[in-house]
């Protein structure tokens, strides 16, 4: 399994935001994408996920098991700005839905919310949670179904220091498990031994 970007270019609203981005990520490796606001971090992630077309270059994905993961999208968890959770449903109902919809059950619901340190909230409506708690439940969503690639867009937005550390440990465990992480962030994620890519934007 390998994720490769070759001379990748992206545009937003018809304006080019970056071009000639190259990287290669192997199992157990992480890639931290940093850069100023507007340098195209989110756009890059959305192109990698396949939500946006690349304006030039290509994303290549080589999976050992092409049956199960025919594309990057199929092999990825995408954690965007939105948490993809419904405020009217309980935390458990939300996670249960994503587990059933995504398939490839990994951790149990209880186990996953235990991992993000919120075991008490399972039966509460998602809307009652604070911003940071919501983000943590959204992170728990990465754990309830298995995907080898995690595409994370500002994953630690709204998290406190303790939760950041906790999340770093979860990412480390995913990498040690042979997973791949591509994360766009402007806050250090506390992840050692990973590649870095600095987006400079289009001049």
């Amino acid at each position: 399994m390998r994720l490769i970007a070759e001379k990748l270019g992206g545009e937003r609203g018809g304006e080019p935001v970056f071009d000639d981005i190259n990287f290669q990520v192997e199992p157990g490796e992480g890639l931290i994408v940093t850069g100023a606001n507007g340098s195209g971090k989110s756009t890059l992630l959305r192109i990698v996920a396949g939500l946006l077309p690349a304006s030039s270059g290509a994303i290549r994905f080589e999976a050992a098991d092409a049956e199960e993961f025919p594309s990057v999208a199929a092999a990825s968890h995408y954690l965007g700005h939105g948490n993809a959770m419904k405020t009217a449903l309980s935390v458990e109902e939300n996670l249960k839905f994503w587990q059933e919809f995504h398939g490839s059950t990994h951790l149990g619901i209880d186990e996953a919310i235990e991992m993000v340190g919120l075991p008490e909230v399972a039966s509460l409506p998602y809307g009652y949670l604070s911003t940071g708690q919501k983000r943590r439940i959204s992170i728990a969503k990465l754990l309830v179904s298995y995907r080898p690639i995690w595409l994370l867009d500002e994953p630690t937005a709204g998290l406190d220091k303790a939760s950041e550390t906790q999340f770093a440990a979860l990412m480390r465990a995913h990498l040690d498990d042979g997973g791949i992480i591509v994360a766009a962030t402007h806050i250090p994620l506390g992840l050692e031994g990973v590649q870095h890519l600095t987006m400079t934007g289009q001049r």
Binding site: E120, V121, L124, Y128, L129, S130, Q133, S163
Partner: peptide
């Protein structure tokens, strides 16, 4: 009470 529980969780 559930709101309080949510605030104090974690």
């Amino acid at each position: 009470m559930r709101k309080i529980a949510a605030r104090e969780a974690g």
